[in-house]
Amino acid sequence: MVELATPTTIEELRALAGSGRLIAGGTDILVQMRDGRDEPSLIDVSNIADGAPAVVITAGVAELSAMAPISAIVSGLAGRLPAVAASARLFGSLQIRNRATFGGNLANASPAADMVPPLVAAAAHVVVEGPGGSRQVPVAELATGPGRTALGPDEWISLIRVPLPEGEDGFLKLGGRSAMAISIVSLAWRWSRDEDGALRGVRLALGAVAPTVVRAPGAEAALEGRAPSDDVVVAAVEALRGDIAPIDDVRASAWYRREVAGDLLREALET
């Protein structure tokens, strides 16, 4: 027998936090429970954000509600944060996007979580709430391993703060098909170009190639301050393949992931 609490305000949630597992859209938890996972006590957060805007833009930062459905975030972005929007549009199916949330995707801490690479490339933070108040955590430090996060049992994610891009940003994903596919490899990037075409402030983040979403420091260094000539691209692709630590699984081999991760970077640099 599962107990479901349904708070509708932050105050009600604060009083309940820690007494059960948080469920937002439920698109992962209900599948896990169907597979036999025991969740005696669930706390629904899907009605707390009702009525509040899914996206608020202030002073160069987009604040995304962690508890709004991904489809509401896509409409609220209205063309801003192209990488986040590109990833969100490829997320699951329309039925899933109408329920699943950014907060749930982050808290689930899947190495293949599609919403995470654009947020890591953007140096986004999450606002974490708990009994003791709120704290900010870089998205890059939220997941500590597959299915594990830095969240305490009585904490929840309320907001994601994403700096608006000053230059270019984007997201590419390779999966079995465009909808409903868990990523084989995903890549998000941010960079600016100076007047000579050199890339500045390069940040790359990859999904499904390591236990958590990772940056690619070797490839970033290979691109930083350089125009992406053929030689530079070759060197960056080579460095990227050394930056990541993919595994063999049912979706792809480690070898294949290294190959296509480099291909995604090449495609990103050519767009």
């Binding site: 859209g25 209900l30 669930l42 629904d44 899907s46 009605n47 329309l94 109408n98 329920r99």
Partner: peptide, 15 residues
């Protein structure tokens, strides 16, 4: 909005 009714609990959509 279309959703998968197998992934929604009744209490989540009570209103």
């Amino acid at each position: 909005d279309p959703v998968c009714s197998c992934l929604v609990l009744v209490g989540q959509v009570a209103a």
